[in-house]
Write a protein that binds this DNA or RNA. Structure first.
Lengths: 137, 137
DNA sequence: TATTGTTATACTCTATAACTATA
DNA sequence: TATAGTTATAGAGTATAACAATA
């Protein structure tokens, strides 16, 4: 394994955790992108597509389809932003908040399980590295 | 941004770095999975599909298509493993090694740029966390 | 019986470009 | 002119199940 590379380790961890997460949330029948979107919206704050795109690292063209499905499902609403009528405020509905809470719970549990033996210092190092990586593009 | 979550930060960093990497390697005309596969094979060691699947976190059904394209392109060969004739040894060809070297160079450069200001201790923390995450599934 | 890898299917994600509406 | 978001298209990734060959 080429685990000395920061980026290869990142890819590997992403794929493995995504599979674990979709399996843990199988009863909600969500795709990885839908899970990611709900987890980001879970704080209850409204966002527009551009902000969600930055938060998830997903392109707006991809988010259109993801949001279509979440909206059709009654989890998310798109409302015209009166302040800038080119954009929408994305907001969770009641059922959307319920689903998002389950997603966050699964995320939290997976993190707690995986990271049980690690120190705060190691976690701080992790966050410093991923923050630096995410700013390359 | 919900940057306090280890998993959300992981997703975000993955998407952003993948876009930067495919852009940096645009002249090779490779997809993200092809880049990941070449980067993993770049050490010159032969692997079978199962090992590559563990290294990348990608399913074997997905790898079949990725390897088909890399093979058609003359970058990778599949040879029956005499020791276990259910599986193949995947090996880079000459042109494959050249492409893989470019991929690794781009990976290395991106890492060097992004992580310039970080300490060895922070990097060690990062590796501890991603290793722990990758073992959840 | 279990494992390796491929095939098949249907759906989702991605890249790119073009487009509308608004700023 | 620039930005927000959608649409369109084609190709790539994903999950699932079924399958042949080998162990």
């Amino acid at each position: 394994m080429v685990s000395d590379s920061v980026l290869l380790a990142l890819q590997r961890a992403t794929h493995h955790t995504l599979q674990a997460l979709t399996a843990a949330l199988a009863d909600l029948d969500l795709t990885a992108s839908e899970i990611d979107t709900l987890a980001n919206l879970a704080d209850g704050r409204s966002r527009n597509v551009r902000e969600l795109s930055l938060d998830t690292g997903t392109r707006s063209t991809t988010l259109t389809g993801v949001l279509d499905r979440l909206e059709r499902r009654g989890y998310v609403t798109r409302e015209l932003d009166p302040g800038d009528r080119r954009s929408f405020r994305l907001t969770l509905t009641g059922p959307g908040r319920t689903a998002a809470r389950k997603v966050r719970a699964a995320v939290t549990e997976l993190e707690a399980t995986a990271l049980a033996g690690l120190s705060a210092r190691q976690l701080a190092g992790y966050h410093a590295v991923v923050s630096a990586l995410q700013e390359v593009s």
